[in-house]
Design a protein around this nucleic acid. Sequence first.
DNA 1: TCTTGTGTTGACCAGTCGGTACAGATTGCG
DNA 2: CGCAATCTGTACCGACTGGTCAACACAAGA
Lengths: 221, 221
Amino acid sequence: MKTFPPTGAETVCEDGVWVRNESREKHAMPWEKTFEESDVIEQAMLVFWEKGYAATSISDITAATGIKRGSLYNAFDGKDDLFMRSLLKYDSEQRKRQLLQLDAVNDPREAIAMFFDYCVKDSLNDPDKKGCLLVNTALDYSLHDDEVQKVVSDAMKELTTFFEKQIKRGQENGDIPGSVEPRPTARALIALLAGIRVMGRGTFGKTALHQIADQAKRLIS
Amino acid sequence: MKTFPPTGAETVCEDGVWVRNESREKHAMPWEKTFEESDVIEQAMLVFWEKGYAATSISDITAATGIKRGSLYNAFDGKDDLFMRSLLKYDSEQRKRQLLQLDAVNDPREAIAMFFDYCVKDSLNDPDKKGCLLVNTALDYSLHDDEVQKVVSDAMKELTTFFEKQIKRGQENGDIPGSVEPRPTARALIALLAGIRVMGRGTFGKTALHQIADQAKRLIS
DNA sequence: TCTTGTGTTGACCAGTCGGTACAGATTGCG
DNA sequence: CGCAATCTGTACCGACTGGTCAACACAAGA
């Protein structure tokens, strides 16, 4: 009877029992990958993020990760697959995480203001000026397949819903005037965000980006 | 003594005098190109506009124009040169022309509103959803050389100045409240425009784009 | 020790990339 | 008729593209 690892890479045999591999071993089991898939996706994501899908080659990714070509193709389906996983990782680790944090903020106007301030600060701090992978991908919308398009569309829809909800909350407690239309304003905020991300890649400087964020706040007053 | 065409392609010998070639000849002179450079740039521009710089190959351009590879490289310096000329053509024929038209509009608020309405209409009408070549290039800012960056930066600067001027004019004749800060608002309008162009490539639909344009108008009220 | 199943590796594939070289065509001029 | 000058078309360049493949390394189980 065979005793084989349940998931392959994350486990190791110890005292006859399969337990999580805490990298205590010198030699990897032959069925274990010598790398963490999530680490590879992380590096791939950074390359796609900075250079864009079309300008990124498989060699760029092998160079960034140290993984050899064959191993890469053994673990993933190809460039499209790598991009899809990168986009999903970005979406869940950057956007969703940020939204969850801001959901916890009590003051709705403050939550929206913090979002914009973060984006401006983030754009200015990044020496590579990568912008936002979702916005970058939104600009290449029709170059991608349906699945990628859906990720982008859903992300923007959720972002719109977030802004809309915050505006309504602000109107309920009197912080935001009733004359502000929740949904149209939410969409305008998305457009402003996209604008910050695009211009933040080099066209506009610190002052301009901050001024745009200020105007976003004015849109909900 | 030689009598050679002063500029090569645009002239033809008639009655011993060099005059502009009005394409009255059946056969091109051996020093005349069989195509108009501006026509080639026009087609190249459309390809770059739709697919982006990285995803566009020289073969795409020869296919779009019918020009053979050798003739292309005989007339232009290469891909970068073709892109630069395409960008300049777009900048002068689309942006500058549009700005000149709107400069003639008397009502400043109307001029700004018309700008946004045109962009939304244009985004929705284009079946290829190409967006705006300047915005597309702004997103790839750091991938391009200094010259291209300068064209983008200058275009956005001029656009900012246009909005700023319109806002000040509107404030002088009382159409726009003095509480609107000209320069920051102008920059926010640019960001909204960029957002419309990005989301207009597929992420957002008709309603959303119109709503964003409406909020742009609210920003100057 | 031999089998088995896995991941690693580098060579290799056909196709495309941007760009070049050169023969051939053409036509005014001497 | 050459000659000069220019554009055209094709073949070709080395480099690179995304992707495949089979030999190999390895350790558990028998």
